[in-house]
Amino acid sequence: MSADAAGDAGTGAFHDRLRAFEGKTAGPAEVAPDEVNQAMIRHMCEALGDENPVYVDPEAAARSVHGEVVAPPTMLQVWTMRGLRPRPPDDGGNARDDLYAMLDDAGFTGVVATDCRQTYHREVHLGDRLRVVTTVESVSPEKHTALGIGHFVTTRMSYLDAADEPVGDMLFRVLKFRPGTGRVAPSGTGSA
């Protein structure tokens, strides 16, 4: 925890520094490590118990309105997840990472996802290579929540295909909170 970051937490000045990230694009588009593929779709459908044949059966998909195998739309976020051993962005700068680091430094180390709103512009097919552009939309003033004292951070993701055509949009909100400051035992500190 840096003295600078901790010194003004809880003040309007700290919130002003957080709000300086609002409207900033996180960095260059992050490209999915893999094309949309049958194996990852199958693993997700098995986990969820989703037996919709259009996700795994080419013949059933061809008979359906989809025409070919499609990924479950709710997997939109999965394709660009950084994974177990994330690499830092190539050019070093990422506004969302910097914002989270500023909150971590001020003691708001807990993170829990609270909202996810996805809109799908087209279906996702095998072989699609998605990329995501992330923008910091807003950072709330300090809030007292059941989990603890924290700030809600709202980001917007725009998912594009290899031709830079829009595939879907997502609004994602997390609570960055100070563990142990809640009214109830924290139910978790992990992201997403």
Partner: peptide, 11 residues
Amino acid sequence: PDAVLRAVSIR
């Protein structure tokens, strides 16, 4: 199987 999801919004 002939349904197309257009949006999913959760809290």
